[in-house]
Design a protein around this nucleic acid. Structure first.
Length: 352
RNA sequence: CUGGUACUCUUACGUC
């Protein structure tokens, strides 16, 4: 359907309001929007933190004789959960969905679990998981359900609990995957427990779950934070040997570590290596370099970098902006800082 | 089996 494609396109270029208007007009043109149309729009709204408008959309579509299906509901529910209103989402699951003759599926519950985790109510999330395991009327949990809980524990530094979940999965014979391991790795890395992370990493090979780019990047990041930059650099070679290509994140992570420690020569070398490998720096990479330059008083270099960034068609983001303003303020150039801010403001950029 | 792929999951840069 042509209209659906248009709605999607409008959402993609951030013109959700236009998309909404279009959908409203469709009805009057004898070309009624269908479930697909509404779901696309609901997703557009949800992704832009407008879950309540998505919620209203549910009512609107029913009025137009188009009943939401489970995909529509899940889209709205996930939006609500990400906004932090898990209660409202749960209400939908318990009341409206059954009223509509739909039944929640594993994705629905996973959204709720994630929602509760993100607002710090892990107990509630666990409750849902347990219900899914025990209640035959509910869909059984999948790997994602478990991973979500795993992640919540790891993010809170509760590694023992995380390990317990992992053990639980093993004992009931539930599949885990590379993401499960990545979550654990990230948890350990954040706590600076690098040697333990290394052991887990080795275990992955024995477990026939090959580390992916995220696994490597997580470990590299952990090493860099602990000042083990040369170990991190060695990982670069190791991963290549294992068929995983270092990406922009791998390089930026190490680049940042070098810069923060004033190892400018090494940083430049790495930048060169990165370019030779055909990986072009993005805004984040430039932010790293610009910050390093400003902190060490190499203002001219910073300006040049900004210039280069522009030439490459990269747009400065909030962080770029903050780095520059901070540096100007420290040099007592308040006027210039304000000027910069205003010009960014005028450009209508998402910076600030 | 053509159109909405919905949740999960993970990784880099600023301010405090």
């Amino acid at each position: 359907f042509t209209f659906n494609i248009m709605v999607k396109a409008l959402c993609a270029v951030d013109r959700v309001d236009d998309a909404q208007t279009l959908v409203q007009k469709m009805g009057t043109k004898g070309c009624a929007p269908n479930v697909f149309t509404y779901t696309i729009l609901a997703k557009g709204l949800s992704e832009r933190s407008r879950p309540y408008q998505a919620l209203e959309l549910l009512a609107e579509m029913s009025l137009n004789g188009c009943n939401p299906n489970i995909v529509t509901y899940n889209t709205v529910i996930d939006g609500l959960c990400k906004e932090g209103n898990v209660e409202k989402a749960q209400q939908l699951v318990q009341q409206q969905i059954p009223d509509d003759g739909c039944s929640p599926n594993v994705i629905t519950y996973n959204s709720l679990i994630n929602g509760f985790c993100k607002v710090g109510k892990i107990e509630k999330a666990l409750r849902i998981l347990k219900d899914m395991e025990e209640d035959k009327l509910l869909p059984g949990p999948d790997t994602i359900s478990f991973n979500t809980i795993l992640d919540a524990y790891c993010k809170h530094g509760k590694l023992k609990k995380a390990y317990k979940i992992m053990e639980h999965m093993k004992t009931i014979g539930h599949a885990y995957n590379v993401v499960s391991y990545n979550i654990i790795l990230a948890g350990l890395a954040k706590l600076g427990r690098i040697s333990e992370a290394r052991r887990v990493f080795e275990e992955m090979f024995r477990d026939n779950i090959a580390p992916d780019i995220v696994s490597y990047n997580t470990l590299v990041d952990g090493m860099c934070r602990e000042g083990m930059v040369s170990d991190a650099k060695m990982m670069l070679k190791a991963m290549t040997g294992n068929g995983i290509k270092p990406d922009i994140i791998t390089y930026s992570t190490i680049l940042d570590a070098y810069c923060k420690r004033g190892k400018i020569v090494k940083a430049r070398e790495l930048l060169g290596e990165m370019l030779r490998k055909g990986i072009s720096p993005n805004t984040a990479s430039y932010n790293i370099l610009i910050q390093s330059a400003t902190k060490e008083g190499r203002i001219l270099e910073a300006e040049k970098l900004l210039q280069k960034m522009r030439e490459r068609g990269l747009t400065p983001n909030t962080i770029t902006c903050n780095i520059i303003i901070q540096s100007l303020c420290k040099n007592g150039e308040l006027d210039k800082a304000i000027q910069t801010m205003e010009s960014m403001w005028v450009k209508g950029s998402n910076a600030i």
